[in-house]
């Protein structure tokens, strides 16, 4: 897809994010907005995904023969739900049910409600990289040469399980795995360097044996280019880690650059101000 077309999708996804969070007055807009370009780049350009003969998106849990994406930092569910709906997994209108009673769009993603496109529950942090490794190793056993992608937060790097997984993947040469860390420098209690300093994540992952590359996560051209680079680097005996520099709240000026909008919903006025900055490109739900 052309970069300009991907940017149009991203604008609509950002509208979906702030509208979902506003409608239930809860959820996590900041990280969702920051990771929008990556998820759009993955689902609308990079990933090979299954469709039926009529072009309709189909979902099966095993995902054999298609690329898989796992969201480890499950709190940014609004961007995940929007991208899944906009790429055809379930009706866009269902976004209106986000975080409401009897919805399939739970606060954090789950397979429990059988929402198409979701393969694991996430929300309790630090587990997605392990799950992604397992899915990647299953692909190898199945002689399936498609890729597994996994997104984590930078605050999430505080979790010990992440480092168990970081040690395992290079040891077992899980080279069909591309992981991303959303480096927005923010977590709930403040800047990551003040809450728990991750210091040099690139040096850490390199020392563990990963191939580390970087991405400007809010520059769609760079997102597309680095995703292509990551695929080219796969299959060389090393897992790939993409340090993705983003701005929390990207696309909505007053939500950017602060941890304040990690888990806060906009009021009516703020919603209007946010939507005024985000052109409606594919039609609101």
């Amino acid at each position: 897809m052309e970069i300009s077309e991907l940017q149009k999708v991203a604008s609509q996804v950002r509208r979906d994010i702030v509208r979902q969070v506003h409608a239930c007055q809860s959820g996590h807009p900041g990280g969702s907005l920051g990771c929008t370009d990556l998820l759009v780049g993955l689902y609308f350009d990079q990933m090979t995904l299954k469709s039926d003969e009529s072009g309709k998106r189909v979902f099966d849990m095993n995902g054999t023969g298609e690329d898989l994406f796992f969201l480890s930092n499950g709190h940014i569910s609004p961007v995940f739900y929007s991208v899944l709906a906009r790429s055809g997994y379930f009706p866009v209108a269902e976004l209106a049910t986000f975080r409401k009673l009897n919805s399939r769009l739970q606060g954090h993603p789950t397979t429990h409600e059988h929402l198409e496109g979701i393969r694991i529950a996430s929300g309790s942090l630090g587990q997605g990289l392990s799950v992604s490794i397992g899915a990647a190793q299953a692909k190898k056993l199945n002689n399936d040469n498609s890729l597994v992608f996994c997104l984590m937060g930078d605050g999430e790097q505080n979790e010990g399980q992440v480092w168990e997984a970081a040690m395992y993947a290079p040891h077992h040469k899980v080279d069909n795995l591309v992981a991303f860390i959303d480096l927005n420098g923010q977590q709930i209690d403040g800047p990551t360097e003040k809450v728990m300093n991750n210091r040099d994540l690139g040096a850490k992952y390199e020392a563990f044996g990963w191939k580390v590359i970087t991405m400007q996560g809010n520059d769609m051209a760079d997102v597309v280019s680095v995703l292509n680079q990551a695929r080219e680097l796969s299959g060389n005996g090393q897992p790939i880690m993409v340090l993705m520099y983003t701005e929390m709240g990207a696309g909505v000026d007053f939500m950017m650059g602060s941890h304040k909008w990690h888990g806060v919903a906009p009021n009516d006025e703020q919603l209007a101000a946010a939507l005024a900055q985000l052109p409606e490109t594919l039609g609101d739900y």
Partner: peptide, 22 residues
């Protein structure tokens, strides 16, 4: 799959392996 002394990672990998029919 030898996971080393890392049980949390082992459980996550096991969950992932089921996605793919294992």
């Amino acid at each position: 799959f030898q996971t080393g002394i890392a049980e949390a990672n082992m459980v996550g990998i096991a969950a992932g392996l089921t996605i793919g029919g294992k």
